[in-house]
Nucleic acid binder design. Structure first.
Lengths: 340, 340
DNA sequence: CAATGTTGTGTGATCGATCACAGATATGCT
DNA sequence: AGCATATCTGTGATCGATCACACAACATTG
């Protein structure tokens, strides 16, 4: 019952008639504690409502059992989803989570966010970093030795990271549209300071080329429905000569659907529309959206797992682990009508 | 340049030729440090890349400069938004944020989550708690003295909390629909283990009664578009005798729009639909949704502010601080057609 | 039966900061 | 001049744990 949480190791020791070191052994699950002693100490802990002091612990042990999550954005469905799953996985692995959000995408903010996290003495850092800003090498420089895993990081270089295979996703979409007979495309890409957006864009362009199709007219959005709407209006202003529209995420696709509707372009009869992410709502858009499903739960889980591996064994190879997305076919895509 | 972050107070002291206590004064912005000394210490700190050790600090000072955020859910737009803004506000106020998510709504999980947070020796706790489970009194009991602020908490009792005035929002909607001439309603409420949902439901029923209108047929959803869809189908199965549909959040409204469309019920010609939350996408639904806007940014900010007030002055009065939402009128509502 | 290993427990030093207190110098006031 | 006060700086104890080590007691082995 004592609600005063100033109970220390020593109090427990005294209460159970052993030394503080033995209590320490108990709470750290060390072997070499006699059955009988263990029971007594455990009882005392319960009776006194003892809780080990995290600060004292990390000070002495040089570990904090804490993982820092540095994010730049949680507004969108994907990142928010990832955070939830990271928290869950971290807790399951015995780590606490400290959350830091960089206010914007600039190199300075990223640096500040990372620096901010260092005084926690965290055991590892997870960077949810859809935005360019600081390179991996710079980060390693800044954090000096603390294990780091990135989520959806840059492409050029292999850094310790977990990624959803954007390339695969885009290729699935291109193939899907190609199979339906479409040849003339437009695209609404994500903001160019996002790795995800770049990955999707680059692959999109490459795929069209590889399959011998003309390059698409592309506009840039900022992931929001509003930007998708504006981008689509801009596209329609320039051309109506396309039969399929790619939006780099579902929200922008939603905006696109509205813009098309306002211009009396029917989906999917006149134009097929595809999105990316498979947000839960996309099944209820008008029409329900064909899109790429990404397993954010798995992403969170795998990133914690990899980070913990790196914490326990720093020699573990640096690699990029991939998660394969899949196509979700709904009613926003249809075979090309000959009569067009 | 030294990337070895094992630089201590003493190293800085030695480097600048003062005592460690003086360095401590500098980093804590104490007065009574000579201009000249301050400059020298600051230089040394920069030169050695010194970072105070948070663990040592909280151990000695009995404060952690950390606020714990206990949430139950971040899936939806609202909570995610609140988290972002809380992080921002906390950082601005000089506090770090530890994030804990209770895996589900049960009393046991909430207790576990809160207990989990206690060994951080956090200075304050913020409970983002749309779900029933543990009462305020129990919480106070568990955390024993640590300042606590709840977000969107229970209604019956005044607890330290920041709330968006759900009642006001619902009343705005009822008035809006009433003004348009509607009298016969149906409603899709949120899950009954959520305070928000209960608040919205209770007020909804009360408002109809007060304005002398018949009670509405109500179905329960779980905030998701899918549940809104299912609930609407269930409603349509029972009756078509209504001209306005209230969904307790925008996602469910989205599902409702789809269900209505599939049943060839036109919105807003046959039925007006309203949502709640004003998620950014709702402006792009088909048709764009009339809804209630809630300022989640302000919610995050005010909760941190109140919590910090309670931390600095425990005697501060316990109160419920309200944020007023407002109506956003779009195309999903229209005047009642006489011919119905 | 001594040598060695396994199991269980206790003691002192330490992690890196803050706090309480005490000194030292400079400044103000009567 | 003399004392009080304001300003600046340093010393030892302390926060609550872990770690390294020492030491028992008992079992195993050659």
């Amino acid at each position: 019952m004592p609600n005063n949480h100033r109970v220390t190791l020593r109090d427990v020791a005294e209460h159970s008639g052993v030394s503080y070191q033995t209590v320490s052994r108990v709470i750290n699950h060390h072997p070499y504690v006699a059955e009988e002693t263990l029971r007594r100490v455990l009882d005392s802990i319960a009776a006194l409502d003892y809780r080990p002091n995290k600060a004292a612990r990390s000070l002495a042990a040089h570990r904090s059992n804490t993982i820092a999550l540095v994010a730049t954005d949680l507004q969108d469905y994907g990142p928010a989803q990832v955070v939830i799953n990271i928290e869950r996985a971290a807790k399951a692995a015995g780590y606490d989570l400290a959350l830091t959000i960089a206010p914007d995408t600039s190199s300075a903010s990223m640096r500040a966010a990372i620096a901010h996290v260092l005084h926690w003495r965290v055991d590892g850092i997870l960077i949810l970093k859809p935005i360019t800003g600081v390179s991996y090498d710079e980060m390693v420089q800044i954090i000096g030795g603390i294990p780091l895993v990135q989520l959806n990081s840059q492409l050029e270089q292999v850094v310790p990271s977990i990624m959803i295979d954007q390339e695969q996703g885009v290729r699935l979409l291109v193939k899907h549209l190609h199979d339906l007979g479409h040849r003339r495309f437009c695209a609404i890409q994500g903001p160019s300071n996002s790795y995800d957006a770049i990955a999707r864009q680059v692959t999109w362009d490459a795929s069209l080329r590889e399959m011998g199709m003309p390059a698409s007219l592309s506009c840039e959005g900022d992931w929001s429905a509003a930007s998708g709407y504006r981008a689509t209006l801009a596209i329609l202003d320039q051309t109506h000569d396309f039969t399929a529209l790619f939006a780099a995420n579902d929200q922008m696709a939603l905006g696109a659907l509205r813009a098309l509707r306002e211009h009396r372009v029917r989906v999917p009869e006149d134009v097929s529309v595809v999105g990316f992410d498979d947000v839960p709502e996309s099944a209820y858009y008008e029409p329900p959206l064909t899109t790429i499903h990404q397993d954010f739960g798995l992403l969170g889980e795998m990133s914690i797992q990899y980070l913990v591996e790196r914490i326990t064994d720093p020699e573990i190879p640096i690699e990029r682990r991939m998660i394969t997305p899949y196509l979700v076919e709904r009613q926003s895509t249809a075979p090309l009508r000959k009569a067009t």
